[in-house]
Design a protein around this nucleic acid. Structure first.
Lengths: 339, 339
DNA sequence: TGATACCTCTGATTCGTATTAGTAATATCT
DNA sequence: AGATATTACTAATACGAATCAGAGGTATCA
């Protein structure tokens, strides 16, 4: 076929319609009336557009227009991790919904994967995200040097999950783990539990600190002792001690710890929630745990909204941190003590 | 104040490095050696790039005729639909994997949604996909006008799912439903089934035709009669007739029909597979049906591979259609007749 | 010494669109 | 008639990167 025929430009349309390229641009962008172009000319131009099958070149458009209406989505792990499908998917749903609403397209930064399979914002010292007008960052990054550098550079981004980086104030949308954890402790106390333990990993990132703080606050609220157990691998013997010590409810920070706990209970002929109420704070999947409901969809939407606000030039820093409420755990593994 | 600091251009880099913009361009595109720019200058330029955090503007690049290394992903429905999570997710995983491997970033076209919530490739007569070097299309589009227009325009794209558009040859990667359906009929026949029915919706798209053809071929292979039932809503009375008529196995094109079938069986005190083997050809989720395994991941990867081949200028049209084998159904709801 | 061959760059131009400033022609008012 | 306003445009330019045709300079050779 005529694969050879060059794509029509405004200049071609202009020639055919007997007007200037500027007029064509005005007509096409609906600035016809406003610019005082008579209906007859408008029709002539549109007819020429039709005849030539003219389609605007988006590259030229966005080059001229400065912004390209692209938002980046960057995850510190693979964007579509198979094993964490449920966990990340909801964020993406929210991000997409809000992007559609705001008329942005999304760029998934994929090619930033280096040889180790680790992703990096900077490759060759170049910020790859800069291709997009701004980005939503998502996932767990151990260090904060890249974040700090992004912020220092003035690149607009919003982090999903509360994040503090010394020396800079970064924008984030987080889940209010602290309140939810605190409330959960309150609820367990209300059910009659007098010794509520907290099991968490040794990591010291914000998310972990928030929950821990919530636990402490919850204990303080109801005048119960703090029973923290920090470990990356739950020692079954701890269960004996806890049980003997009168612990009737346990908050586990993550699912592996909770699984180890339930297994250890099982080995001892105990079960949840009859002998021990078990709450997992964060689960990767929607299985039958009693766990907090992380408002993932809302967080995704909120991040995009915040990002567009930043791009619009909002400088109110109070506007750049947002905590969304978590849903409280359902009853699957919660009950009154000694039931 | 500098909430959104202006992005550095090659001109800025050039000034800082004390060279011309043309030199910067040459260095950045690795044409340094070839253009005879000494290592020292190259380093000076790269250092300036680093200092300014320079990143090429993709719009300018593609305007000038070079490629973006952006691949579009366009779905005719929402990209991350809640209810079809499992269905689409795997395609995206495959697409992402291959994109990473080939060093492309992905653009999810989201802003193409119009007021009705319907998505369109063309808005204001502008092909929004043109931002990306090429695109992978995915999902179910009822009409084919947009596809035809894309093809006529010479825009590089690969459709996931076999697709024919009269008058043009479009590139696609499909699942070999026909063979899989045919083989499934053969397998049921081998188990002893003599009357195998096929229930399908009234839609006439390629995917449906393929399965139907497979069913017909399968029946022909083993000399069994074709028992087609075309409906969008399964009439429970049909089950009576089928059962009375000696039907011992049913292929249902989709999950809703299969669900209606199983429900109708249940009402009659019958069950699958004891009284009736039930195979669903396509399921949205991985629930306990006997269904074909659609090679979604492979299709996603294959589509990207094909697209990069097209972008590289492959003109061999035989290269632009690819059928991947489906896995055959597992035994959950399949058994010998009258078990 | 003049010619020729590199070497290391640079100036100018191009891509297609949006926009601003301006212009020529006509119409209206005083 | 002369001034002013309106109509209907157009010329010129900017956006950022890529590319081509050289331009000076030095080195080599006859």
């Amino acid at each position: 076929m005529d694969g050879v025929r060059r794509r029509a430009r405004q200049a071609d349309v202009a020639k055919l319609a007997g007007v200037s390229q500027a007029t064509v641009s005005a007509v096409i962008n609906g600035r016809g009336p406003e610019t005082g172009i008579p209906e007859q000319t408008v029709q002539r131009v549109l007819e020429a557009v039709r005849q030539l099958g003219y389609v605007a070149n988006p590259a030229a458009r966005s080059l001229r227009g400065k912004r390209n209406r692209l938002l980046g989505v960057y995850t510190f792990e693979s964007i579509f991790p198979l094993d964490q499908l449920d966990f990340y998917h909801e964020f993406l749903v929210g991000i997409e919904q809000q992007a559609v609403a705001d008329g942005y397209d999304l760029v998934l930064f994929a090619s930033t994967e280096d040889l180790d399979g680790r992703r990096r914002v900077y490759s060759d010292g170049v910020n790859r995200l800069a291709l997009a007008d701004g980005s939503v960052l998502l996932g767990v990054e151990p260090g904060s040097t890249e974040l700090a550098r992004l912020a220092a550079e003035g690149y607009p981004f919003v982090h999903i999950g509360r994040r503090t980086v010394p020396g800079t104030e970064i924008a984030w949308v987080g889940a209010d783990y602290a309140s939810a954890t605190r409330d959960t402790v309150g609820r367990l106390a209300a059910l009659g539990h007098r010794r509520i333990a907290y099991v968490t990993g040794p990591d010291r990132m914000e998310v972990f600190l928030d929950k821990e703080a919530g636990y402490r606050a919850g204990c303080a609220d109801v005048g119960l002792p703090e029973l923290m157990y920090v470990t990356s691998q739950l020692d079954p013997a701890w269960v004996d001690a806890a049980h003997a010590g009168g612990v009737t409810a346990v908050l586990a920070e993550n699912e592996p710890l909770a699984r180890q706990l339930v297994a250890a209970l099982g080995e001892r002929g105990l079960s949840a929630p009859a002998d021990m109420s078990v709450v997992v704070l964060v689960t990767m999947t929607e299985s039958g745990w009693s766990s907090l409901r992380i408002p993932r969809n809302e967080m995704g939407r909120g991040a995009v909204k915040m990002l567009t606000r930043i791009l619009a030039g909002s400088d109110d820093p109070g506007d750049h941190q947002q905590l969304l409420p978590c849903g409280l755990p359902e009853d699957h593994m919660i009950g009154p003590p000694g039931a």
